[in-house]
Design a protein around this nucleic acid. Structure first.
Length: 641
RNA sequence: GCUAAUGUGGCUCAGGGGUAGAGCAAUUGAUUCGUAAUCAAUAGAUCAGGGGUUCAAAUCCCCUCAUUAGCUCCA
């Protein structure tokens, strides 16, 4: 129910959903120009920000997320209030709600440490107890600036100054605290009773690294203590899936101080990677790709032609060979282009899909490194597609479909972003419009949901990004499809058209996994290390009851090996319970227990990692089940999110 | 790169100015066992690296490196 108070003090109630549109309509017709609040989920929230400055409806959505946003936004005000009480010289910057909680950026002499959290939390609890009403008021621009100047809030003054001329400048006040804010807010400070400050970090004012670094405090609040407890427990659980932890425990990969950002892969990790690449080649071959390889190190002249030497140099590892500058490739495109340019092409060959599994090196900032997700050397499952302008849409569709097919194989859900022309761009606007329309149409025709990132495209072309989520909800860009108008021109690429004349091809640059390393990291977290059988580094572990049955166990192992099943034999003189426990912790999909019974009947007692004991089966029977799972790449991980 | 925190045997962690401690793993021996931990013994660390303060530094201070959480950047 949405309760709207009208200027004549009459109150009308509306249903959620379709009725909300009526509310919107009455507001836009001026009936409720000065609406003060709406009730959502039993909580009164402000409605002012549903109006544009011109009185038109901008935003009217009554979903849970908004309820949470309001709750956490008010919480951020409470935190700022508490900090101002404890450190009166603190200057406030911005403090929004985020997906999981809220933060506030603060400029203050005092260096916050973890021990301060308790103090701040205690002060916040006092403010909650005070249960002050949140009151909204507006000020004309000049007065607002003066107000904030007097309050010694230089960041707020800057924010006001940057608002459009005709913007409504609103403030929210509760108790002894006032903040420049568009709202909306809770009615009172009494609700966020369960409070937890989570972390402290530096953040540049306005996100610009040239600006001063402020202190950002993250927190989360709930109405009930139980909800907070559950949330913290959930975070704790999520951390157990962390690919860095599992990578070590399951002996998949490791990082060494000898090569920060350069991962080492252990035999088991390589098994998984190889299986991924086998799948990749199969799918790409079917989709009409050819595969090439280009060198890791290429000379300066090439990188100058591509533009990287000037625009990307600080990220490139360079070296000198025979008194000439060379660079280790940070991207595969120039190499791929040399392959294209190596021979003449006809329009009849298009679209020409040229894949390359290429290892690239980029000198990322040390602080940006993150397990396998952000490394300095990684392998892109790259491809460059050369085509005619009229082939763009279908080709994009094909690639998006391919990526969707691949992600579905892993049971992943993902979200798609379409990034459009940035302020600085190369080429003609009409080409950009054409390309953006083609990208968008392709996505719409495929029925994929996507969000548009206005102006976030690369300077050489618009792009579609595919994002996957890690164990604690951070999203990572994996697949991407980028149109590139720049490189074909820089390298003067050509093809012979139907008219016998030379033309410039359209080029797209795309990756499906993105980076094999990052994808592997996501994979580990999504499966919590329990890979589906087809990917599992060890698919079957043979566990003899005692040494007496070692010969039979060996025989079973050989039989499985002959079928290309990845099998290990636990030949230690341990009890069966111990061996099972270990195999279980290694997340091996199948355990074959063999003892006297099995050796006599030529069977194995099958134990599946999730379902437990499946009873005795002949080796033929169980291996055909396993081979089927492998062949179909069945998604039998018990851990999928 | 920036802000903050952290760095102790292979792993997880305790200790926090008086010459290093646990559990797991490892090794050896015994046990030959029926579905998530058999028993015993042994070995393993100049406490990230370097410098300083001190009679004495893993512990306090400084620098460097790495890691973690963010920011910035990005696959």
């Amino acid at each position: 129910m949405i309760k709207i108070t009208f200027p004549d003090n009459s109150v009308r109630e509306y249903e959620k959903g379709i009725k909300a549109l009526e509310v919107a309509k009455s507001i836009s017709e001026g009936l409720a120009r000065n609406v003060v609040g709406a009730v959502y989920n039993g909580e009164t929230i402000g409605l002012q920000n549903v109006l544009n400055e011109d009185g038109n409806i901008k935003f009217l959505k009554f979903e849970d997320k908004e309820g949470k946003d309001v709750f956490w936004h008010t919480s951020s005000h409470i935190m700022a209030n508490a900090i101002k009480r404890l450190w009166p010289d603190a200057k406030l910057a911005i403090g929004p709600a985020i997906d999981n909680g809220f933060y506030y950026d603060i400029d203050v002499e005092h260096r916050f440490v973890q021990e301060d959290f308790e103090k701040i939390e205690a002060e916040m609890k006092k403010i909650v107890k005070e249960a002050s009403q949140l009151e909204r008021f507006e000020l004309p621009r000049e007065e607002a600036i003066k107000f904030m100047t007097d309050a010694q809030e230089p960041y707020k003054v800057e924010l006001i100054q940057d608002l459009p001329e005709d913007a409504v400048i609103s403030f929210y006040k509760h108790g002894d605290f006032v903040d420049l804010c568009a709202g909306p807010h809770l009615e009172s400070t009494k609700k966020p009773k369960a409070i937890k400050l989570l972390s402290i970090a530096g953040a540049y004012w306005r996100g610009n690294e040239k600006n001063k670094m402020l202190q950002r405090i993250y927190g989360i609040t709930f109405e009930k203590a139980k909800d907070l407890e559950d949330y913290l427990k959930m975070l704790e659980e999520a951390k157990k899936r962390d690919h860095r932890k599992l990578g070590k425990e399951l002996e998949l990969f490791f990082m060494s101080e000898s090569g920060p950002g350069f991962p080492f892969f252990l035999p088991k990790g390589v098994e998984v990677k190889n299986e991924l690449m086998k799948y990749w080649r199969e799918v790409h071959k079917k989709a009409g790709y050819v595969e090439i390889e280009s060198p890791i190190i290429l000379n300066r002249q090439l990188w100058e032609t591509s533009g990287h030497w000037f625009t990307y140099k600080e990220n490139m590892y360079t070296t000198i060979i025979d008194e000439q500058d060379f660079a280790i490739k940070p991207m595969n495109c120039p190499g791929g282009i040399l392959v294209y340019a190596n021979s003449m092409h006809s329009y009849k060959d298009f679209p020409l899909r040229m894949g390359e599994v290429g290892r690239v090196h980029r000198h990322e900032l040390s602080g940006a490194l993150h397990g396998l997700m952000r490394v300095r050397a990684f392998t892109q499952d790259d491809a460059h597609i050369f085509m005619l302008p009229e082939q763009i849409k279908d080709e994009i569709k094909g690639v998006a479909q391919l990526i969707d097919e691949m992600y579905s194989t892993f049971g992943f859900s993902y979200h798609v972003e379409l990034s459009t022309r940035p302020e600085k761009f190369l080429g003609e606007i009409k080409d950009w419009d054409l390309a953006e329309a083609a990208l968008q149409e392709a996505l719409v025709e495929l029925g994929l949901d996507f969000v548009i990132n206005e102006g976030d495209g690369a300077f050489y072309g618009p792009k579609i990004d595919f994002h996957l989520t890690d164990c604690i909800g951070r999203t990572w860009q994996c697949g991407t499809i980028q149109l590139d108008y720049q490189l074909p021109q820089r390298f003067e690429l050509e093809y012979i058209g139907a008219d016998g004349q030379k033309h410039r091809p359209i080029m797209i640059h795309r990756v499906a996994f993105g980076s094999i390393e990052r994808f592997f990291g996501i994979l580990i977290e999504q499966y919590a290390g329990a890979f589906p059988t087809w990917l599992a580094p060890v698919q079957v572990k043979v566990l003899p009851i005692s040494d007496k049955f070692m010969d039979y166990a060996q025989k079973v192992k050989k039989q499985l090996e002959a079928l290309n099943i990845r099998v290990e034999l636990d030949s230690r003189a341990e009890k069966i319970g111990y061996k099972i426990r270990e195999a279980q912790m290694e997340k091996v999909p199948f355990m074959f227990v063999v003892g006297e019974k099995e050796a006599e009947n030529n069977t194995v007692s099958v134990r599946e990692r999730q379902k437990g004991d499946l009873g005795a089966m002949s080796i033929d029977e169980i291996s055909s089940i396993i081979l089927d799972k492998i062949k179909n790449r069945e998604n039998d991980s018990p851990q999928l999110l």
